[in-house]
Every structure is written in structure tokens, then in C-alpha cells.
């Protein structure tokens, strides 16, 4: 029995750290002295002037874009803007979400804070509901498209992995009549890797 809880972003979660590294366009509404070069490699002066637009990572945007005295005004990343939303609304399943935005759902959950129209929220939910069947079919080995896996974003991929692992166990059980003990997964992978390393010499 495995107590697998669903992914929830937390302080130590690698996926959350990587998702908050994704960038979003911002416009500076105050001057920021000294940091010109640090934040904008092609800057001319030492300071960042009011009105400069830059793409900043979400972890920084969260500190600068909120509160009583924001330093920047935040815009939405490209993939949540109208043109892209229309593509997603038309047929969510046809979109290669991996190319569209690797952290589509995670980044979206942060970006939606800066969206006054609640459209980001809606498009995330709509897309997920539309694509769920695809994920389920993939996990159950029903889908005949072996490359479909590559078009999933990080969140979908995680769901697919969990579902697929569980389905594989069920299929194995249906096929066999005994319960073979097996070497631990880490041990198997470790051995495989070792073999490859030796062959490289």
C-alpha cells in the first residue's frame, strides 16, 4: 500500500521551484538604482528606469509585483494571452502542451493572480478537463499514439506516470498467477546504469 498524495506545491518541491523560474513580462513603475546590469544584461545605464519592460522570473515578480508599493506592473506570459487561449479553447487535446508551455498549469496558477478577468483561471480548468481523457487513455495503454506522451506538460506527465504505474501493476496481476518477489526498483535501475557505464569504457 502506498500513501501517494497528489502533488501540492510546497517550499521544497523541485517542480515548484522550476515553475517559478519561468518568466513573465513586467514594466517597472519605479526606478531601481544600481541593479541595471544584473537584471537586464543589455542595459546601458547603471540603473533601471521607470518604464523599462523586462521579462522577470516569477519568484522575483511575486516579491515586486504585489503589496502596497509594487515595483513592477505585471503582464501575463504569452501563452495565457487571448490568441493562445483561443487555440486552447478550440481543441485542447490537439495542442502540444510541452511545447506550448512546459509548466503550463503551474505557471498559470501563479500568473492568474495578475489577471483581473479570471480568464487564465478558466482556461486552465477548461484545458485540463478537455485533456484528461487523453491522459487516462495513455495511462491505460489504450492510446495507439506512442508520442502522445511528449505533448504533456509537467503536471499531466506526473498524473500519467502515477496512473500508468498503477495500471501496469494491474495488468501484470491479470496475466500471472503467482506473486514473484522482485528486486527493488532503485536496484534494477542502478544495475542497468552500471552496465551502461562499463560498456562506455
Amino acid at each position: 500500500m502506498h500513501l501517494q498524495s497528489a502533488y501540492m506545491p510546497n517550499y521544497f518541491a523541485i517542480d515548484d521551484i522550476l515553475a517559478t523560474q519561468e518568466r513573465t513580462p513586467c514594466k517597472f513603475i519605479v526606478n531601481v538604482p544600481t541593479l541595471g546590469v544584473k537584471l537586464n544584461p543589455s542595459a546601458e545605464g547603471d540603473d533601471i528606469q521607470v518604464g523599462t519592460t523586462l521579462e522577470l522570473p516569477m519568484w522575483l515578480v511575486q516579491q515586486l509585483g504585489r503589496g502596497r508599493q509594487p515595483v513592477v506592473s505585471v503582464d501575463l506570459p504569452q501563452m495565457y494571452k487571448e490568441a493562445y487561449r483561443e487555440v486552447l479553447k478550440a481543441d485542447p487535446r490537439a495542442v502540444n502542451l510541452h511545447k506550448f508551455g512546459l509548466y503550463f498549469y503551474e505557471l498559470g496558477s501563479y500568473a492568474k493572480e495578475f489577471d483581473n478577468q479570471r480568464e487564465v483561471n478558466d482556461i486552465l480548468i477548461h484545458t485540463f478537463k478537455g485533456r484528461f481523457r487523453k491522459i487516462m487513455d495513455l495511462a491505460d495503454n489504450i492510446s495507439s499514439d506512442s508520442t502522445a506522451q511528449d505533448s504533456l506538460d509537467v503536471l499531466e506527465r506526473r498524473l500519467y506516470t502515477d496512473g500508468h504505474r498503477s495500471r501496469s501493476k494491474l495488468n501484470a496481476w491479470l496475466v500471472e498467477s503467482g506473486v514473484p518477489l522482485e528486486a527493488a526498483n532503485m536496484v534494477i535501475n542502478h544495475r542497468k546504469r552500471k552496465r551502461v557505464d562499463i560498456e562506455d569504457i
Binding site: N31, Q63, Q69
Partner: peptide
Amino acid sequence: RNSEGVSLMPTIRVRHAA
């Protein structure tokens, strides 16, 4: 405020976030 009278607060905030 730096020598030109511009507030250093935003700068401090950026570094703090980092």
C-alpha cells in the same frame, strides 16, 4: 536614498528576494 535622491528600497527588495 542614494546620492541622487532616488529611493534604494526597490533595490533592497530585489536583493532580498534573491
